[in-house]
Computed example of a mutant assay.
Amino acid sequence: MKHHFSPLYLLRFFLLLFSMIVFAACQKAGKADTAFYYWKQTFSLNKPQQEILEKAAGHKLYLRFFDIKWDTRSNRAYPEAVINYQQKTNTAQITPVIFITNQTFEKLSVPGVDSLALNTHKLINQLANTHNIPYQGLQFDCDWNLSTKDKYFHFLKTFKAISNKRLEATIRLHQIKYQVKTGVPPVDRGILMFYNMGKISPKPEDPNSIYNEKDADTYVSHLSKYLLPLDIALPLFSWSIHIRNGTVIQVYGKIGKSILSDQSNFQATAHKNVFKARRSFFTAGVYVKTDDLFKLEETDKNLLDQAATQLARHLSRDEKRTIIYYEIGNLDPSEFNIKDLQEISGRF
Results as ranks from 00 to 15, higher is better:
C26E: 01
P185G: 08
K60T: 10
T104I: 10
V110L: 13
K257C: 04
D67I: 13
S109G: 10
C26K: 13
L45A: 05
P204F: 01
F336T: 03
Y78K: 15
I259P: 00
V187P: 05
L227R: 12
N132W: 04
T130I: 08
K295N: 05
I200W: 02
K107Y: 06
S19I: 11
S6A: 15
L123H: 09
N119D: 12
T170Y: 05
P202E: 05
S240I: 01
F194D: 03
D291W: 10
F336I: 08
R64L: 13
L296K: 05
R347C: 02
L116D: 01
F14Q: 12
R12S: 09
K47H: 06
F18L: 14
T91D: 05
Q267L: 11
Q41I: 06
S19V: 12
Q306E: 15
G246W: 05
Y37T: 09
E319V: 09
K165G: 01
T91L: 07
T72K: 10
L108K: 03
A169E: 06
I338Q: 11
L61Y: 07
T322M: 11
L138Q: 11
Q87I: 07
N302A: 15
W144H: 12
L127V: 11
Q175K: 10
L45H: 06
A56W: 02
M20L: 12
K165Q: 12
D262Y: 00
H242Q: 09
D141Y: 08
E319W: 00
Q263T: 15
A277R: 01
Y62D: 02
Q306D: 14
Q179F: 00
D231V: 06
I94N: 03
L61R: 10
T322G: 06
D114L: 10
L16K: 10
E51V: 14
A169V: 02
S224L: 10
D305E: 13
K301R: 14
D206R: 06
I249M: 13
N46G: 06
F43H: 09
E297D: 09
G183M: 08
H121D: 13
E51R: 15
K88M: 05
Y226M: 11
H314L: 07
T247Y: 00
H314M: 07
T120K: 00
G30F: 11
P134S: 08
G246K: 11
L127Y: 07
P235T: 04
L116H: 06
L15T: 00
